[in-house]
Write a protein that binds this DNA or RNA. Sequence first.
DNA 1: CCTGCAATTATACACTTGCATAATTACAGA
DNA 2: TCTGTAATTATGCAAGTGTATAATTGCAGG
Lengths: 217, 217
Amino acid sequence: MVGFMTGERKKFTREGEERRREALIAAALDLIAAGGPQAATVRAIADRAGVTPGLIRHYFRSKEDLVREAYRAMMTAMSDDNAAVLQAPHPSAEARLAAFVAAALRPPVMDPHRMGLWAGFIHQVRGDPDMAAVHAETYLGYRDLLESLIAALGPNDPARLRALAIACNGVIDGLWLEGCALPDAFAPRELETIGLQSVGAILGRDLLAHLPELESD
Amino acid sequence: MVGFMTGERKKFTREGEERRREALIAAALDLIAAGGPQAATVRAIADRAGVTPGLIRHYFRSKEDLVREAYRAMMTAMSDDNAAVLQAPHPSAEARLAAFVAAALRPPVMDPHRMGLWAGFIHQVRGDPDMAAVHAETYLGYRDLLESLIAALGPNDPARLRALAIACNGVIDGLWLEGCALPDAFAPRELETIGLQSVGAILGRDLLAHLPELESD
DNA sequence: CCTGCAATTATACACTTGCATAATTACAGA
DNA sequence: TCTGTAATTATGCAAGTGTATAATTGCAGG
């Protein structure tokens, strides 16, 4: 009869270190995305990962450490999603660029969840030099990739190339932001089309004509 | 002898309700901008405003109420700063639009402090319907204003006008974001120039030629 | 079936948070 | 100068925070 209706010790199974760390990071990211950093308490994270709070400190030096690793995981995931579309073959440089731009303005890259994450981390990135380094690195990597795609369109002097990359990056970021912030304010492919038109206008190319996937929906 | 070297009661002066409320709101905004919502505790806000924590609940129903009003104050301030440049006379519709775009990519509108604020509020806006309403209202107001400036350039059908406004808004937002996030990554007027070129490219106008203030620095 | 150990849970603690309430005090008006 | 009162401060509290540490227990190897 002992233990009936009383707080019995929780049953658990031993998992590999890798899986536990990933589960805790994923839980932290979900919570930050949904409710900001303040929602990601050790207890909430542990709850969502299906463990008890103490385990966090068994796998991470501190909660701050967990958040740091979560940030790194998010940034690499975004980079990978962005660049994934470039692995497919494309008939021309224009088509490559068009596919890249369109991918940024469509799920899973354009996603309110992602924007919540991004915004939630901003202040912590400010304070932590390690996180700031990850941020700068990822941002510049993205812009460099974009610049190389633009360079493939044709010859351009470096200064102009840099300005074009910044401008296109700005367009993509801005539309991404709008789409994430007000997902219901736009028609399904509206932002994608606007993005291609705008980047195309900046570069003097008709990118819309080079996107092969527009008939899929 | 009573009270010597002991915690004496704080001296204070009575201020008008208006000024106290403004001071508390300003303090909350500063703290959120610098360190995110988690930094804006009642004690920190009161400290920064030069009062004791209890006073917050004398002027606001709850901390949540104070944050709500702070958000409203921020949004109207941003709108006002944006639109202020339009009060001056401009020789042409192009010049008006150019001045508007440039103003958005220059202090005080483009300011890391402001971006910190904006990001800090995102999650709270999600949860609170009142704040969400303020947000949508302000955003759409800004875009409508932009659309009217574009419409003044010449005749356009409504659908195209809407798309142009969204695109230009996206460019401005994106460049604003980049400038705020990495203030040292760009030359002084670089983003301003890129913004004018890009918006100009989208609209098919040379806006850069219509900005009168470029010789000021 | 043991037995040891590391993974996991449970408990406790010092600190912070927002809020309620009581005690003061500045200041306008008599 | 006195007095009332509203603005302001001081104190206390319950809930929540991250962290340290002790108590369990799943599970691999004999």
